[in-house]
């Protein structure tokens, strides 16, 4: 109980003082997670709808793969990205290892299957309802995808939140490819891991509280947006 009240005081202090290091950690956490989530949506959402509305050989295998990749272990993803971005790896010449960009790439790989699988499920239902009308109306493939995403935009918000929730709370992949460098690649989760390992439990707990509050705030914005769309 003492640790919790100390953590609460520390969290309020960090926010109240406007601690620069703390704020840069928050900014980086939000920046990396939001960038990865939006990129995963841009790539995964059309693919998810395309999987729902197209019929081709190997489609079932792709759906199965995207579902199976939902449980992709972050540390393994981090390791693969590390190997690809390391100096001797195929993408080593770009010098991205231990940068926020590498963290975005790792998270993008983790999030895209989530977006594809959840969007596919939503789109399959909507295609059953609107697919016939779209085909009779002569909508092309890309137009059909756009219409299905527009109709299902409230559900897409849930997909966004699921992907963002995974990203903001993720530590295994980004600590491997980002390196937890102070002031450069340190995020909320990697900072919590570090403070915990140092025995600074109150500070780790304080950072955890701020992380939960941030996540809550993003959800609240999404909820308000969904309500505005329903009107």
């Amino acid at each position: 109980m003492h640790e919790v009240s100390r953590a609460l005081a520390l969290a309020l202090g960090l926010i109240g003082r406007g601690d620069q290091e703390f704020l840069s950690i928050v900014r980086l956490s939000l920046g990396v997670s939001l960038t990865a989530t939006l990129a995963a949506l841009v790539i995964g959402a059309p693919l998810g709808v395309a999987l729902a509305i197209s019929r081709f050989r190997g489609r079932a295998g792709l759906i199965l793969t995207s579902n199976a990749l939902l449980g992709l272990p972050p540390v393994v993803v981090g390791l693969c990205v590390y190997l690809a971005l390391s100096r001797s790896g195929p993408l080593g010449k770009f010098g991205l290892l231990f940068t926020p960009a590498a963290m975005v790439v790792a998270q993008l790989i983790l999030l895209t299957p989530i977006v594809i699988a959840l969007t596919h499920r939503m789109a399959a239902g909507l295609w059953g309802e609107y697919g016939g009308a779209l085909m009779v109306d002569g909508a092309s493939g890309p137009r059909s995808i756009a219409i299905i995403l527009a109709i299902g935009r409230a559900t897409m918000l849930t997909v966004f939140l699921a992907a963002f929730g995974r990203a903001i709370s993720e530590v295994g992949a980004i600590i491997v490819v980002g390196g937890n460098i102070r002031g450069y690649t340190r995020t909320m989760t990697t900072a919590i891991a570090l403070e915990t390992s140092k025995g600074e439990l109150a500070l780790a707990l304080a950072l955890g509280m701020v992380l939960i509050a941030l996540s809550f705030a993003v959800n609240a914005v999404a909820f308000l947006l969904a309500r505005a769309w329903r009107k």
Partner: peptide, 19 residues
């Protein structure tokens, strides 16, 4: 393709685009 058949269809659920 349905579009090339010169038909129009009214569906049981109407399938009106809600947005």
């Amino acid at each position: 393709e349905p579009m090339a058949r010169d038909i129009a269809m009214v569906f049981q659920n109407y399938a009106l685009y809600p947005h």
